[in-house]
Design a protein around this nucleic acid. Structure first.
Lengths: 338, 338
DNA sequence: TGTCGATGTCGAATCGGTTCGCCCGAAGAT
DNA sequence: ATCTTCGGGCGAACCGATTCGACATCGACA
């Protein structure tokens, strides 16, 4: 069931079948219909591998996600969904690969073997080996996130620094004076995870600007860790009245931890953060947060990548989003304790 | 940077380079080292597309997920993660495709173009067009889930029928007499989603066996729907004291709905269900549930698929899991009301 | 009538690997 | 000294598409 078979049954040459299909040269209407009839009858579809070999492109993009062992956050899930969706709309397939686990073979396979025309990279470090690999391989790529030298690549990202600063200002406006920053996991921060560092910088800056008392804590990406994190923070400063966070997954745990400490949200304690909109709305109480538009970011990442694939020599482009903070149910006037 | 270039620089023929790399024929040690040196210097990696064309296999499997527009449930996320992981261990890449959305082109592309050696199918209906397509295409596939005629395919699945029946029995043992079944969304059930039907059958059977009063309700896969679903059920039968469910995503909403109705869990009301272990443990209170071992299922699906790819003529195999119910914090003795 | 242009089709090269058959030369067997 | 064997390597075919140059046919026009 290859193109030769179709050609034989239609009584034409293989090239004619190819042209009938692609329309790149004129084929007489009668011939075209005869060929089409055979194709329909046999249910023929051109072999994508052969086409890829000849054309030098695979019509496939790689999506590099965090190691599968770690649970994707809600926001990351949103990125994946929108990338798959946007790629599908552009008739591109998505090859999924996780990197950073013990087996980086997957990443090497995808990048080295020219299996994809380009790559979208998630969870980028300030210094990221994968970026170096991709650059050396000459493979177009776009980051969801950016390295420490972002002008050298194309990316979409969330302006965590600004957003966390805004959260702090919002909390300060409500009268909070003792605010904690809850980061993502210590491992991520230690390996130079951009959002951790940038958000922390924004936090420190805003705390200084408002002359507040600030605390920081890393916290693993799960509810249980959120509980212990809150316990730890309240122990460290019993007078704490607010948290600003980028750790989506730990938020339900924070709610719980506060509840166990006898504190109500937002009566006794406020939380503001950066989170995917879906999650923020579905938490209870709904989270006051800068709503990250995961679809928009994913879609833009794909568009940027398509452009780079089409013309790798164009200057790098980027998109930094700083969505407004949606006031929901977790921030209120400070009620000092202690 | 193709094999010809390596051959030229090493002063040997292309075939010798190929044999040096694959080891399928002996190559003298000196020649091998010379070739290897050139390869290392140039960082050469064989082109996966060309290899795939010649070998007739792509070393890639397709993973068909529910439409991207819908949020993956925690359990589904677990499946995806474990499939990607298991495939990676077997040096297979994973091509992600969502089906069921408005643009089914993705599925057709993947299946028709021979882009993959086999497919893993998620969210299977009792009668599923995709199964028909795959069968017609002669492409090996394994279901995470099964159709109404499961003996005709290879699959792994959760024994929802048994598990929901067990949940009912467990609740009945605790003295509950008025129990509701909360299904997944009405659309899924209407389109013949297997777990919906099988779980419902198990529910009806167990209710009959124990001569209880049973109610059923579909509920969309999100927290908000969980709230309204509980409201509706309590309105329909104010004397309801327990829920058995397969709707993971709605559970936080059910908690909330019960809370708003002034009912405590498990004091006034019990919930038991089927859920991914990760979710069950991380809910608050932790859910009494049959813990679905998503990793095990995903891993087994990949293994089954690898076998089918290696020899499509072997008889179909399957794995039906019915994990024990882990007693956690959501079931307790019935306290009849009304 | 001969030339020209357009139209429709074909043959062959090509993409980058893998693999089969063959050949050369050295060593061992007779 | 001749025959066989075998290690090591080469050339060519092949996988299934795309695409370029060439060519046959035919009508129009000088």
């Amino acid at each position: 069931m290859n193109i030769g078979e179709i050609a034989r049954r239609s009584g034409v040459s293989r090239s004619t079948v190819s042209y009938a299909l692609s329309g790149k040269r004129r084929v007489s209407e009668v011939t075209r219909q005869r060929i089409q009839a055979v194709i329909d009858e046999l249910g023929y579809r051109p072999n994508a591998t052969a086409r890829a070999l000849k054309e030098g492109r695979t019509r496939t993009i790689g999506l590099i996600i965090p190691p599968a062992s770690r649970r994707l956050t809600d926001m990351q899930l949103g990125f994946v969904a929108s990338v798959v969706d946007a790629a599908g709309r552009a008739d591109l397939d998505v090859l999924l690969s996780s990197s950073g686990g013990e087996h980086d073979r997957s990443f090497e396979r995808v990048v080295g073997g020219k299996r994809v025309d380009g790559v979208i990279l998630m969870e980028i470090r300030l210094e990221d080996d994968r970026v170096t690999s991709l650059r050396r391989a000459g493979l177009p790529f776009v980051g969801i996130g950016r390295t420490g030298t972002p002008e050298e690549m194309s990316w979409v990202d969330i302006d965590y620094e600004t957003l966390i600063a805004k959260c702090v200002h919002h909390l300060a406006d409500l009268g909070h004076r003792r605010i904690a920053f809850v980061d993502r996991s210590a491992e991520l921060a230690a390996t130079g995870y951009g959002p951790s560092h940038r958000a922390h910088a924004g936090f420190v800056r805003a705390i200084a600007e408002r002359e507040l008392k600030g605390f920081s804590s890393c916290c693993a990406d799960d509810a249980t860790s959120g509980v212990t994190c809150v316990e730890r923070l309240l122990e460290e400063d019993p007078g704490l009245t607010a948290i600003a966070t980028i750790n989506e997954a730990a938020i339900p745990g924070m709610y719980r931890g506060l509840g166990q400490a006898g504190l109500t949200v937002p009566g006794d304690f406020s939380i503001a953060g950066v989170a995917g909109r879906y999650l923020a709305e579905n938490l209870h109480p709904p989270l006051t947060a800068a709503d990250v538009p995961a679809d928009e970011l994913g879609t833009n990442a794909v568009e940027l990548l398509i452009q780079r694939i089409a013309d790798p020599s164009t200057p790098h482009r980027s998109l930094l989003v700083a969505p407004p903070i949606s006031l929901r149910g977790t921030t209120g006037p400070a009620r000092p304790r202690d």
